[in-house]
Design a protein around this nucleic acid. Sequence first.
DNA 1: TGCTGTGAAGCTCTTCACAGCC
DNA 2: GGCTGTGAAGAGCTTCACAGCA
Lengths: 214, 214
Amino acid sequence: MYTDNKNKHIPKISIQRLAVYLQVLESLDVDGVEVITSEPLAKACDVNASQIRKDLTYFGEFGVRGVGYNVKSLMASISEALGINREWPTVLVGAGNLGRSLVGHNGFKQTRFKIVGVFDCDPFKIGEEIAGLEVVCTQRLKEKIADLKVEIGIIATPPERAQRAANHLVSAGIKGILNFAPARIFVPTYVNVEYVDYFHYLYSLAFQITHDKR
Amino acid sequence: MYTDNKNKHIPKISIQRLAVYLQVLESLDVDGVEVITSEPLAKACDVNASQIRKDLTYFGEFGVRGVGYNVKSLMASISEALGINREWPTVLVGAGNLGRSLVGHNGFKQTRFKIVGVFDCDPFKIGEEIAGLEVVCTQRLKEKIADLKVEIGIIATPPERAQRAANHLVSAGIKGILNFAPARIFVPTYVNVEYVDYFHYLYSLAFQITHDKR
DNA sequence: TGCTGTGAAGCTCTTCACAGCC
DNA sequence: GGCTGTGAAGAGCTTCACAGCA
């Protein structure tokens, strides 16, 4: 049963792990597994078993002592805990190569996150169609976001235009931003920002490989 | 001066922050800033100033007391510390939509990471050309990796084929894997793996927005 | 019996506060 | 005087170890 624990502070890193647990549970479910204990689940997620149990107790008691966790119902509980068991309309700012490939991403078919608007300030791009969505002038963000009750914006502009895109999104009333542009952005504290730059992971690999050699 | 400190353990999270510092320094450099102190740099990176100073001392003493850090030389020192001040040839496994858009990513023009080979096991894709690279059968990974001294492999296959791609890469002698497939992979401990799934960031935003409302 | 849920211990990372140096 | 570099204190997360329960 999902019981939000309003009192405890939940580490952000636990949230990130819940996403991993969910991914692994989904593949277990596909394989027909119905019940799993924390130990093998931990192995599959590459974490400690009590880590999993502790992360889950932030949100409730989902297991059965002596038995384990029901795969399907744990998936449902985690989805509810994360808040992803409902539609999340999003808007995309930036209709370049990156933006275009984001629109086509499988995740938007498989999850309840949807791109409902594509914006760009380039007059050459405005009016173009991407996967059934017309590219609209960034000036019109506010009306669209209000109309469609959008809370999350995705920035896929070149770095020098990221801050401007963020400003538009913020003044349109957005609550969260996923920023693919390789640039830091400044927003009021009530707006949540997540940065995605996979070259940082390549840097991390380069570092690890370089230092393994010693 | 870069001085590798072989004795100290360097937290992985420090490495990730170094990538952020580098990004911010690059944009300061573009703006013509020559010297910066830890305080404003920290603000721009959204971290604590002593965090930066501590992270940097894992690798040496780069600042001048009473003055600050020279932007250009700090960039060079961080690049050296991360090990990204040299060419890093990589191979891509998976020539679908995702793979295609990775090949075109700007980062491969702006950094010294390069994709030097594209592999797929789909006979329909083999022989195709992507940005000047011929798609080659995955069976031929080993020779290519040996020939071109490739140490990093990028997996951009569907999730069900990720493990097979990883196995091929490992037996070809790869040392690090960047995995874009939404699936966990199992590799020997001497192989480093980084996972990229930006839907996890959307989950995190959804969680934060859901809980902000209280 | 077997596995979850959890207080407490342990450990790692972060921040403080100031010595050290330009 | 001012800012870096750093030992020590503090905070937060992870893991242990076992009570609790099916």
